[in-house]
Design a protein around this nucleic acid. Structure first.
Lengths: 195, 195
DNA sequence: GTCTATACAGCGATAGAC
DNA sequence: GTCTATCGCTGTATAGAC
């Protein structure tokens, strides 16, 4: 069956999300209009509502998909020793976040623009990710491999430190991502008191 | 000379800045209208323009004053040993930032809403603050007190870690600020490889 | 599925009375 | 110094033609 002229099912949708991602990260959610997103895609503003019920859903879906992918990939088997799992976490976190600067930026900066219900969902996903690290730290502390006074603080401190890479790292800069990973692994290993 | 009714020179100005600070931190700069700020102060929107030439200047001044105060207080004399100065930095940073959550939040989150000229000024102030820490680390490394591979990365990693406290710390919570300072000092001391 | 047109509210900023 | 009133514009979202 011939397609109607101007029909782009399965093409425009992803382009809308990609345009929203880029613009939200660059200018901030509240500063981006639906007209601006539509212009980036090459359609009129009204057409966007074939792909999202409203503007906030666009933001929420970007965050949710990002965090679900993060959780899907953040699998550090409990069979390995805690030091190895911690090293895997550090490397994974840095690389995953360096690969998705726009998504990471939005997921941290635009939480205020979610409804309470959507906010709670996003926070729950983030909490599940933090728990992956906390479990590693707790296992290591129990086995005497790490010397940690408070695993919750250590968890938040490590994540803040690692996520901070995104504020300055640029591919092609002074340091390669391999070097960055090595340096942060050094710092984390020392911070948890591992040999 | 009798004051004109409704005249509040020297009173309304600070109240405007305080209302803007609170609302910007809570809802985000772009989501706050001049009318909302005026309502919080208890005046009409037009009256705000007696105190600021425009909305962006309000944001810029809040950031600039915050960072200038940070720099004014962040004085760690070069006479003491690097380990003592680093400890002072860690304690100062955590306490100063915990005292001003709204200012800190704005100064990190709303940089995108500044004109290029204003952005450059704010970034220069922040850079001067980072240099205070980097100098301490460099001195310590030179003297062999610290074992640091790259002082620039260590600087950014420490600041990210310490500033991250603001995302979760609440006065009256499980931990006192004294305990938080002690824990982070432990982590930083280890991370720089100090005895 | 996209268009044009539009409803309706809100925006930053200014002018002029008091 | 604050008010009221207003300008010109932009915002999200919807309706109906094609």
């Amino acid at each position: 069956m011939a397609r109607t002229t101007g029909s782009h099912a399965g093409i425009t949708g992803p382009r809308v999300r990609q345009a929203a991602l880029r613009l939200f990260a660059q200018k901030g959610y509240a500063a981006v209009s639906m007209r601006a997103i539509a212009a980036e895609v090459g359609v009129q503003a009204g057409a966007l509502y074939n792909y999202t019920p409203d503007k906030e859903s666009l933001l929420f879906d970007l965050m949710r998909v990002h965090l679900e992918e993060l959780l899907a990939q953040a699998d550090f088997g409990a069979e390995a020793d805690p030091l190895t799992r911690l090293r895997q976490f550090v490397e994974f976190h840095i690389r995953f976040h360096a690969d998705r600067p726009d998504e990471v930026f939005i997921a941290y900066m635009e939480l205020r623009n979610l409804s309470p219900e959507n906010f709670a969902q996003i926070e729950a996903l983030r909490r599940r990710y933090e728990d992956r690290l906390e479990t590693i730290l707790r296992d290591g502390a129990k086995q005497g491999v790490f010397a940690i006074e408070d695993t919750k603080i250590m968890t938040l401190a490590i994540i803040a430190m690692l996520t901070g890479v995104n504020t300055w790292f640029r591919s092609g800069g002074r340091l390669s991502l391999d070097q960055v990973v090595a340096q942060y692994w050094d710092m984390v290993r020392r911070a948890v008191g591992a040999e």
